[in-house]
């Protein structure tokens, strides 16, 4: 619907137009209708496809690593870390219009408070979840983090690769790009749930799904309520850091 010359009567109130007047004498409607605002940015369909493509590219890097079983395990782990970081940064650049707002907002203090206060709870849920996986289901637990600790990585390096990188990159991907693109097509609550499930399934660990889902839902809620990326990044960073330190010190 482009620009159209208004005709004899005002479309708002039905009064006849006064000759030469710039607005309706009865209701004040301007005579020349503004042309419709041109939508900027990507369409909701293209945006959703792009967000789903990000998910499948990340999944692809993870699955490809299983095919590289002849290579050194820790080399593969480092490669995934670097490749996934680059992939997410490329997507973040393409979707920068979605991310600028949440990255420029700090969010209210109480959401930061909730994020920090929730860390002991999410760590406890993670512990209970993995305990149940080992003792109830009887899975032979191969914990990749434990393998890294046994391999003799230093604590600062572990914190960088297991806490800082996942917190920033995963939050940018799921609570940034995926959440934003989903909320363009479904309600925020549904977008939180879908983003949390995508976050859970990408970890490819059905037996840790319960705590990943809790973490994903909470991070999504924080992102939605605060309008900022940072509380969810803080939650994710602290959660992972606490787990790394607990495992490092042998408390876990």
């Amino acid at each position: 619907m482009g620009y159209r010359e208004p005709l004899s009567f005002c479309g708002e109130c039905g009064t006849a137009w006064t000759q030469g007047a710039s607005a309706c004498g009865s209701c004040g409607k301007p005579r020349v209708r503004a042309t419709q605002v041109v939508k900027t940015g990507m369409s909701s369909g293209a945006g959703l496809v792009s967000a789903l493509a990000l998910y499948f590219v990340l999944l692809g890097t993870l699955l490809a690593s299983y095919l590289l079983d002849t290579a050194d395990f820790f080399d593969v782990l480092d490669s995934i870390l670097i490749v996934d970081t680059i992939v997410v940064l490329i997507w973040a650049f393409v979707h920068r219009a979605d991310l600028v707002g949440p990255l420029r907002t700090l969010g209210e203090l109480r959401y930061w408070g909730i994020a920090v206060a929730a860390v002991p709870v999410t760590v406890a849920i993670a512990y209970a979840n993995l305990w149940a996986a080992v003792h109830v289901v009887g899975t032979t637990n191969v914990d990749v983090l434990q393998l890294c600790i046994n391999a003799g990585y230093s604590l600062p390096f572990l914190l960088l690769t297991w806490s800082l990188q996942p917190a920033v990159i995963e939050e940018l991907a799921f609570r940034g790009i995926v959440f934003e693109r989903l909320s363009a097509v479904v309600e925020p609550r549904a977008a939180i749930i879908v983003a949390a499930i995508a976050f859970t399934t990408l970890h490819m660990a059905v037996l840790s799904a319960v705590f990943l889902m809790c973490l994903g839902l909470l991070a999504g809620w924080l992102r939605w309520k605060s309008g900022s990326m940072y509380p969810s990044i803080a939650l994710h960073l602290l959660h992972n850091a606490v787990v790394v330190v607990l495992m490092w010190t042998g408390v876990w």
Partner: peptide
Amino acid sequence: HANARTLKFCENCGG
């Protein structure tokens, strides 16, 4: 007369 969806009165006859 074909009117835009947002209008309340016909721009041609005022109905």
